[in-house]
């Protein structure tokens, strides 16, 4: 048993190392209470719907969302817009389709099965329109950044004047949560920028939280199912483990009588 503890100790030490090494390189992000954290975490539907609005009105003019489809807006575990709402959202965008019988491409209103329309035709066009910087696709952005959702939430609120001695080129902004502190996106949020239909006060903090929640969902659309299934799976495994443990005790008790 002593040996076991020694191994355990070393493992904990190792894991501790790993976490401390991760902690060392990151700044302290702004904290907020996320409804989707923890083993029973769920998304806040209203926040997702508001977050979609922020994405749509603020982010989507530069940032694409290419792995998301309009139908996802209806799906369970997401913003859960009604079918009519989602259809109306989709129909407000034009997508290129074709070729038609004459061999020509044509524009038509988007349907639920279409992917989110991209602001730019391709990456090069996006760079050209944004001073050489490519606004990253936002679908899995939360998972593509070490700080995750906290990082996005903080970054949106992290703009400030550069400290003395830091000079910024044209089109470069200072953000205390950005890696290297220099970011090519200007501060996008200001109080009252969007008008929430549910009457929520659109403060910068509120919008940052809503859109971060929305981005968490676009990155992990099955998070709620995963949490629910995980709980069931682990409870099941524990029950079976207990049963197997007692079966094992019973079976091995035969050896004792033999010995």
């Amino acid at each position: 048993m002593k040996k076991f503890y020694r191994v355990l100790f070393l493992l904990i030490l190792f894991v501790g190392f790993q976490f401390s090494s991760k902690a060392a390189e990151k700044v302290e992000y702004l904290k907020t209470d996320w409804s989707f954290k923890g083993p029973f975490g769920k998304f806040d539907r209203a926040a997702l719907q508001r977050g979609y609005q922020v994405y749509q009105e603020v982010c989507s003019s530069c940032h694409s969302m290419k792995y998301l489809s309009y139908r996802n807006l209806v799906e369970k575990g997401g913003p859960e817009f009604s079918l009519e709402q989602a259809k109306a959202i989709a129909a407000s965008f034009e997508v290129k389709d074709g070729p038609n019988a004459d061999g020509e491409m044509f524009m038509r209103p988007a349907r639920l099965s279409d992917k989110f329309v991209m602001p730019y035709e391709n990456e090069k066009a996006a760079q050209a329109a944004n001073g050489g910087a490519y606004p990253p696709d936002m679908t899995v952005l939360v998972k593509a950044r070490g700080g995750g959702v906290d990082y996005i939430y903080s970054l949106l609120q992290g703009y400030e004047d550069p400290p003395v001695g830091v000079s910024l080129d044209d089109g470069v902004y200072y953000n205390k949560y950005m890696y290297g502190n220099k970011i090519k996106m200007s501060n996008q949020l200001s109080d009252g920028l969007v008008e929430y239909s549910d009457g929520t006060n659109a403060s910068v903090e509120q919008m940052a939280k809503d859109v971060s929640t929305f981005l968490m969902w676009t990155a992990e659309p099955h998070l709620e199912t995963r949490h629910r299934m995980g709980f069931k799976a682990i409870v099941y495994l524990i029950i079976l483990t207990v049963l197997v443990y007692f079966s094992m005790k019973r079976i091995w008790s035969r050896v004792k009588t033999e010995v």
């Binding site: 029950i239 079976l240 049963l243 197997v244």
Partner: peptide, 13 residues
């Protein structure tokens, strides 16, 4: 009974 229960629960999984 113990063995039957174990088998049954295992089969469900």
């Amino acid at each position: 009974f113990l063995f039957t229960a174990t088998y049954a629960v295992g089969a469900v999984g």
